[in-house]
Design a protein around this nucleic acid. Structure first.
Lengths: 185, 185
DNA sequence: GCGCTTTACTTGTTCGGGCAGGAAATGGCG
DNA sequence: CGCCATTTCCTGCCCGAACAAGTAAAGCGC
């Protein structure tokens, strides 16, 4: 319904940067969202925050030569030392197949090394290289910058409130997810 | 650095469903996260919420035969009527290349139809098919279920607080993103 | 030992997302 | 009019994420 006949005349003429176009649209789209999207206020808010957050994280990580997701693997290795792939999968809640490819790319980039486990010939031990130690500082800087981008314009009270809200939402989602997984099929 | 010698003994023996394994890990990982991850409390909370939310959305959408992202395109078409691909890209803040492929898959699934624009021979007009109207109810049900999964276990006050917090975070992120995009390069 | 299940990892496929590059059409300016 | 930047769309490539299927090894019961 409400078919806009003038499909050709719809420019707004504000396209400035190619990279910020998506963020711009996501930021300004909150007002122009159609009714069926407005129905889920929380859902839509989570969508937008997640997208902006992921976009910013990718943008910052690209400066240090990492793709989103790879930094989490490196953090686990830096903090907990050499581990098997299965341990990384379990800690990050990732997929074994995704981990295989991520590890391979990190190995090819020279950030991790892998050698077969002595006691279990199925397993591989993944360990960070000494070359990755320089990366660690950069990643921590990125992490800090990301955190400040989220929290800087919030008062301490608002930060506490935000974390509380996110924690509650997470619990709610976790409950729903496990419920769905166990209920159906 | 605390090399875990017992790499073979690390099972927790609680793997029930293959699909809930990731959610389970994500939900329980909040306590076992290493120091460098704990540093960014907000960042990490957003990560976890976004992941659970996307996972649940994908799970629900799969039941109606859609992949995450496709439902947003259909919603725009249902609410605003036939549009050009460029309009969809602008409204959803997506990528032109991604939109090309998404539209092609939706067309192949029979949910949209595309025909060349009369006034602009570069553009294509995308319109929802009548067959997609049945899908609309299902998508709205999915959307409602997703929303209730987020909000059900929250009091009205907590919901308002959550939306406030998410809105503040979004504004903060949008500001940081545009600032980054304009500052560097 | 033998057979079975479980675990660890790999590969293939499909999808969204982003970037780069190119073809075609448009529109503005000299 | 021609020239040129812009817009629109397509394609290829890379990456993360998820699913399915397969291999190899380990563990367990008999």
């Amino acid at each position: 319904m409400s078919q806009p006949k003038d499909t050709s005349g719809s420019k707004s003429g504000s396209e400035s940067g190619s990279q910020s176009a998506a963020a711009e649209a996501a930021a300004t789209a909150e007002m122009t969202m159609p009714p069926s999207v407005q129905a889920g206020a929380m859902t839509h808010a989570i969508f937008r925050v997640a997208r902006l957050h992921r976009m910013l994280a990718a943008q910052l990580l690209r400066r240090v030569g990492l793709h989103p997701g790879q930094e989490l693997v490196m953090m686990q290795l830096w903090d907990l030392g050499p581990q098997r792939q299965a341990d990384l999968v379990r800690l990050l809640g990732s997929d074994a197949a995704t981990m295989t490819r991520t590890i391979r790319r990190l190995e090819h980039a020279g950030f991790v090394r892998r050698h077969p486990c002595a006691t279990d010939r199925r397993a591989f031990i993944i360990e960070p290289t000494t070359a990755s130690l320089a990366l660690r500082r950069q990643v921590e800087e990125v992490w800090a910058e990301l955190e400040s981008s989220v929290a800087d314009s919030l008062t301490p009270d608002q930060q506490t409130e935000a974390i509380d809200a996110l924690t509650r939402i997470e619990r709610s989602l976790a409950h729903a997810t496990t419920r769905h997984a166990s209920a159906e099929q």
